[in-house]
Write a protein that binds this DNA or RNA. Structure first.
Length: 655
RNA sequence: UCCCUGGUAGCUCAGCUGGUUAGAGCACAUGACUGUUAAUCAUGGGGUCGCUGGUUCAAGUCCAGCCCGGGGAGCCA
């Protein structure tokens, strides 16, 4: 048996008899089978003669039927292909009911094919993507192996919750309904939270007093419904100043304890039904409080954001033997949504639900709370400080409720880690990897790239002129391969953004100033408008980056006198955004410990990680690259769900 | 999770401001043709108009809630 790729490419096979097998793409004119076996995107045209194959058999050459053909390879009489097979023997291996088979020989939408993920490999687009995914995967091993890196398998299950890369999936064999618990008492002593509660309230108060942008009226009458008296606030148009006593009323809302919360929640529905005019007041309160909540969540209220409050509350819980069961990090777990019960949504006790007991994880399978990994980096560092150069390449899991074209709950990540390497070496390694993979794909996936390039051009043609990409897929890959990546510091990036047209015309949704996290609109401007090529940004403010990144001092690369920066680097690609995130790691024990304390990372859980700094610590660096994001780039696809065989996303794990 | 947008035949979509029997192309079936290239031509079958409730003499069309998809945002790779 020959592969169709071999038959089409090897001219020595002309005028010989071969056997091929594959799936029918189309059967034209009762004579021509376009056969594809997945070895290449091209089909072999198998010519059937009516006198040799009866009508009943011919009727079985339906789309996607599995067929085995034996015949002579000859120069094609038609113009669409170089050679074709004059079939002498044909066998249908597996029938395919044309009426029931969902994929037809025509263009389907990607959304439709995603719902048929089990069969979409039989289409040109997806077979091309997955052949290229193989080329990229294999190229990764090839690249690191050629540089002397050891392939290292980091664990998929981890008992450490301190890796700081998003929400994690829990792994447990305990019963979900009634897990064993260690009780800390009958109920939660809320006075233990007094300090953090006041801080929470102060943050909100400052916002309401200083820059509440939402217009409202009759706050007092609304609050009166809940036995929370207030006097009539001052009302202006535009920026509203709330009367001090109105502010105090909101303070009472913030400090509603769980029992009162429950009571008010129950009366709320009836209250709304009795007097429909109250709905309007609810809408106004909703606007105010939902806006406030969103700003708090996004860290737009100054120094204190929800992340800060969460870590504080977690600390108190750990100290008291309580369990923080729900928090704002996982919105869907809130007791009452901001939409339904606006005044309650802001209650501290609504956002942080505390239970007076702890699940007894000593009785769990691993004897400790365990989760699916979000990163193999910490373990890779352990190996790198012994083997010198290692890389991990495996699945990672994020339980974020992310619903975008570039996020998955399960994805594959490459994480190299190298001892005695600084940030410059890290950047060189990252750029080298990207270019190696692009070169490999250009060399080994020519047919598939040509198909995807044409597919993309067709798609672009339907877009308005100003939205079309300047370069086609293949040209884009060649451009990235042939030009050095732009390397700039975070401070430079901010300068460029401040001088940019969109900033001066106030077209950015998020304001630009030193200290902010770059929003995707900012990244996109830098990469797609300003530099028009991949950009590596280094030296981010320490405040917005992970605890293990090395703190910069004067003279260090990426240092800024505007605030503390760390030796981080993000590689930004056009259309995809952050494709690689890496850093030089903090190798100084005292600096690392101080930073962990500042960022509320529990040092005791990570004693094993800190041991690398205790015993023979060395400068080292590494990065993480999302495989699917890279495949997205080289295939020119737009949605990450189309470049992984079976995508896992919130509310979706079929197949 | 938030904002925007969509859900009509197996697929892609049309259906204007509510008004008779909801259409087209492809696919499928039957027949014709036989060197085609998503073959072509003729004929035919195929619809709980996402779900639930409401407004109306009348709802695919208007309203509310829910479910699912797409785009954008946040989280990040």
């Amino acid at each position: 048996m020959h592969s169709i790729k071999h038959v089409l490419d090897d001219s020595a096979l002309t005028n010989t008899t071969v056997t091929v097998a594959g799936w029918v793409r189309t059967f034209r004119n009762d004579r021509f089978i376009a056969l594809n076996d997945g070895s290449t995107i091209r089909n072999l045209q198998c010519v059937i003669h009516q006198e040799q194959v009866d009508a009943v058999t011919r009727a079985r050459f339906t789309t996607s039927a599995a067929v085995k053909c034996t015949g002579t390879i000859v120069e094609s009489k038609g113009s669409g292909q170089r050679v074709e097979m004059q079939v002498t023997a044909v066998e249908v291996l597996g029938d395919s009911d044309a009426e029931a088979y969902p994929i037809q020989p025509k263009k389907h939408s990607l959304e439709f094919l995603r719902e048929k993920a089990h069969l979409r490999f039989r289409t040109n687009t997806y077979s091309a993507i997955f052949r290229m995914r193989h080329q990229v995967s294999f190229g990764i091993h090839e690249y690191f192996d050629s540089l002397g890196y050891n392939y290292f398998h980091s664990p998929i299950i981890t008992a450490s919750d301190a890796e700081g890369a998003g929400e994690m999936f829990q792994v447990t064999t305990l019963p979900v309904e009634k897990p064993p618990v260690i009780s800390a008492g009958e109920s939660v002593d809320y006075s233990k939270f007094e300090g953090i509660l006041n801080e929470y309230w102060e943050t909100i108060r400052a916002f309401i007093e200083n820059d509440n942008p939402i217009q409202y009226y009759s706050l007092s009458s609304f609050l009166a419904e809940f036995d929370i008296p207030s006097s009539v606030p001052n009302i202006h148009t535009g920026a509203i100043k709330i009367h001090p006593e109105g502010v105090q009323s909101i303070e009472r809302l913030v400090k509603l304890t769980p029992d009162l919360l429950e009571k008010y929640h129950k009366s709320f529905g009836a209250w709304k039904e009795q007097d429909p005019s109250k709905n309007e007041q609810t809408a106004i309160m909703r606007k105010l409080l939902v806006g406030l909540y969103e700003r708090l969540r996004d860290g737009r209220l100054g120094n204190k954001d929800l992340g800060y409050f969460k870590s504080q509350v977690e600390g108190i819980c750990r100290l008291q033997g309580y369990q923080l069961r729900r928090s704002i990090g996982t919105d869907y777990m809130r007791m009452y949504s901001a939409d339904d019960i606006p005044p309650f949504a802001l209650s501290f006790f609504n956002i942080f639900e505390v239970l007076p007991n702890l699940v007894d994880y000593k009785k769990d399978f691993f004897g400790a709370e365990s989760r699916l990994t979000v990163s193999g980096q910490l373990q890779a560092e352990l190996a790198a400080t012994a083997l010198g150069k290692v890389y991990t390449f495996g699945p990672t899991f994020r339980a974020e409720n992310s619903n975008t074209a570039r996020h998955l709950a399960e994805f594959w990540m490459i994480e190299p880690e190298c001892a005695f390497m600084d940030l410059h070496g890290d950047m060189d390694l990252a750029e080298g990897l990207c270019k190696h993979l692009i070169a490999r794909v250009l060399k080994n996936s020519t047919d598939d790239l040509q198909f995807l390039d044409a597919r993309l051009k067709e798609e672009e043609a339907t877009k308005p002129k100003e939205q079309r990409a300047e370069l086609g897929l293949i040209d884009r890959l060649k451009f990235v391969l042939e030009n050095p990546f732009e390397r700039i510091t975070y401070s430079d990036a901010i300068e460029i953004l401040l001088r940019s047209k969109p900033h001066q015309k106030k077209q950015f949704q998020f304001p630009v100033e030193w200290g902010i996290d770059l929003q995707s609109e900012h990244e996109r401007y830098l990469v797609e408008k300003h530099f028009k090529k991949p950009v590596i940004v280094t030296g981010y403010p320490g405040k917005i980056k992970a605890f293990y990144m090395r703190t910069n001092a004067p003279g260090d690369f990426g240092y800024s006198d505007k605030g503390t920066t760390v030796a981080a680097m993000d590689v930004l690609f056009p259309g995809i955004g952050e494709i690689i995130g890496g850093s030089q790691r903090e190798e100084r024990l005292d600096v690392l410990e101080a930073r962990m304390k500042e960022m509320h990372v529990p040092a005791d859980e990570l004693w094993w990680y800190l041991d690398t700094r205790r015993f023979g610590t060395v400068p080292h660096a590494g990065f993480g690259m999302g495989l699917e994001r890279f495949v997205l780039f080289v295939t020119g696809m737009g949605n990450i769900r189309d470049v992984i065989p079976f995508p896992r996303t919130p509310k979706s794990a079929e197949f």
